[in-house]
Amino acid sequence: MAFLRELAWETRSQWRLLLTDPKALLNPLLFFILITVLFPLTLGHRPALLAEVAPGLLWVGVTLSVFLILPNLFFTDLQDGTLRLWVASGRALPVYVVAKWVTHWAFFVLPLVVVAPLLGQALYLDLSVSWLMITLLGLGSFAMLGIGAVGVSVMQKGRYNPFVLAVLVLPFYVPILVFGASGVSSLTGAGLFEHGLLFLAGLVIFILFLAPWAASQMLKLTVAQS
C-alpha cells in the first residue's frame, strides 16, 4: 500500500506542476479542433459522406494530438536534471511514469475527448451516442499516451525526431484505431460496440501493467547516456 500512497502523492504533485500553466491545455485542443475542421472544408458540403467518415476522422485527430503531446511528458525533466535525480534516488521509476501519464492524460487529452462529440456534430455525426463515444475515445487515448510514453522515453531532448518517434509508436496504435473507429461507427449502425469497448478496456489494462515498466527501463538507459 506504500506504493499506492506514493503514487497518489506523486500524481498530486505532478498535477500541481501542470496547473502552474493552465492555458497550455489549449494548445492540443486548438490543434485538434483545427485539423478536424479542415476536413469539412476540403471534402465539401456532403453530410452523408462526412457522417460516414466522421468516427475515423475524430480518431485520427485524437491520435495526432496525443502524438504531439508526447514530448511534454519527460523532456523538461530530462533537461533540468529532475529525471537524473529520480533515478539516483532509487525511488520506483514506474511511479513517476504512471503519475506523468495519468496527469498528462487528464490535463491535455481529456478536454479533446470531451470536445470530440461536439466536433462530431460539425461532421453531422449523431450526438445521441456521445457518452459511449467519449468512453471509447477516452480509453483509446489513454492507451495511446501510455504506448507513446514508452516510445518517447527512447529519445533525448537533443535527439528528438518526430519522424522516428512516429515509426516507433504509430504501428502500436493500429489495433486501437481499428477497434476504436469500428466501435464508434457501430454506434450509428449494426452493433459491435461491446466488442470495441471490451477490447479497449483489455488493452488499457494490458498497457497499464507493461508500459510503466518498459518506459522506466528506457528512461534509465536514456539518463545513463546523457
Binding site: V150, V154, M155, L168, A214, L221
Partner: peptide, 20 residues
C-alpha cells in the same frame, strides 16, 4: 540507427522487440 551508444540501443531494441 538513432542511438549512438550501441549497448543502450540494444537494450531499448530488446524491450521494443518483447513488446512487439
Amino acid at each position: 540507427d538513432v542511438l549512438a551508444d550501441a549497448r543502450a540501443a540494444a537494450r531499448m531494441a530488446a524491450i521494443l522487440t518483447l513488446v512487439g
